[in-house]
C-alpha cells in the first residue's frame, strides 16, 4: 500500500519508515529537512520511497507541497497516513510563550488535521480504505511537569482521531492513535539522567520505550490485521502508570 508519513527524517518516523519499507509498502515521506537516513532510504528502497521537504509550521503551504500531482495526488491511492511529525515545547505553564505555543500547535495539530482532510479526500476519490494513525504521547494521559502544552496538543489529536473514526467509519476509513512512552530519540534528548531514571522508575518494565516496538504497532494498525480496530489509542509505553 501507499503510506504518507510525516517526520520521516529521524527518530520514530525513520523507524516507522524502515518497518513499512521492509514490509514491502511504498512510503511517501515528508520532513522539514533531508537527512542521512532519507538518502539511505532513497538508495536502498528506490522506487518505493519518495521524499518531499515541507515545513508543517505553515500548514497550508505544507499541504500544497504534499497533496499535489508531483507527490501524493489523486493518482496515488493512499492506504495509510501516519501523522508523526511533532514539535516539542517544554516549559512551565507560567512561562507560556504565545509564539512558541502557536508554532507547536501548527505542527502538532493544525497540519495533522489538514493532512487528514486531504488523506480522506484521496481515499474518497479512490474508494480506498485508508487507515490513519496519529502519533500521540504518554504525556496526554499522565501528567508530566513542563509538558502541559505539548500534552494538550497530543490530547487534541487523540480526540480528533476518535471523532474522525466515528465520522468516516461508514466509508471504511479507520483512525487510531498510538501513545508511546518516552523513547531514546532526539525529542527526548533534553532529559537529564535524573529525569530519565525517574521516567524509567514509573514504567512497569523499568526502561524507556523501544521505538521499534512503537513502529511495529503503527504498521499493525495500518494493516488489514487491524481491520476491526478504529477510534482507539494504543499505549506503547512499557506499562507506564
Amino acid at each position: 500500500m501507499n503510506v504518507l508519513l510525516t517526520g520521516v527524517s529521524r527518530g520514530l518516523g525513520a523507524q516507522i519508515c524502515e518497518v513499512l519499507l521492509r514490509e514491502g509498502h511504498s512510503v511517501y515521506g515528508v520532513s522539514r529537512a533531508r537527512s542521512e537516513v532519507v538518502s539511505r532510504f532513497e538508495s536502498d528502497f528506490g522506487g518505493r520511497f519518495f521524499f518531499r521537504c515541507a515545513d508543517l509550521s505553515s500548514p497550508d503551504d505544507a499541504r500544497r507541497a504534499v497533496f499535489c500531482d508531483e507527490f501524493v495526488g489523486n493518482r496515488v491511492p493512499l492506504g495509510g497516513f501516519v501523522s508523526n511529525a511533532a514539535q516539542a515545547y517544554g516549559d512551565l505553564v507560567s512561562n507560556i510563550s504565545p509564539a512558541r505555543l502557536e508554532s507547536m500547535f501548527a505542527v502538532n495539530v493544525f497540519s495533522p488535521m489538514l493532512f487528514t482532510k486531504y488523506a480522506i479526500r484521496n481515499a474518497l476519490f479512490n474508494g480506498s480504505q485508508c487507515s490513519i494513525v496519529h502519533i500521540s504521547s504518554i504525556s496526554a494521559h499522565t501528567g508530566y511537569k513542563g509538558l502541559a502544552m505539548y500534552a494538550a496538543s497530543k490530547a487534541a489529536m487523540e480526540a480528533f482521531s476518535q471523532s474522525t473514526a466515528r465520522e468516516w467509519g461508514g466509508r471504511g476509513i479507520r483512525s487510531n492513535a498510538v501513545a508511546p512512552g518516552f523513547m531514546q530519540t532526539q525529542m527526548s534528548s533534553a532529559l537529564s539522567p535524573e529525569q530519565r531514571d525517574k521516567i524509567c522508575a514509573r514504567a512497569s518494565l523499568k526502561r524507556l520505550t523501544d521505538a521499534t516496538s512503537v513502529a511495529e504497532t503503527v504498521a499493525f494498525l495500518l494493516s488489514p490485521k487491524a481491520s476491526s480496530i478504529t477510534g482507539q489509542c494504543i499505549c506503547v509505553d512499557c506499562g507506564a502508570v
Binding site: 489523486n74 479526500r121 474518497l124 476519490f125 461508514g170 466509508r171
Partner: peptide
C-alpha cells in the same frame, strides 16, 4: 453529507 464530500473531491479533481 458524505456523498456531497465525494462529489466535491471528484469535481475538484
Amino acid at each position: 453529507s458524505f456523498d456531497l464530500a465525494e462529489l466535491t473531491v471528484r469535481i475538484e479533481d
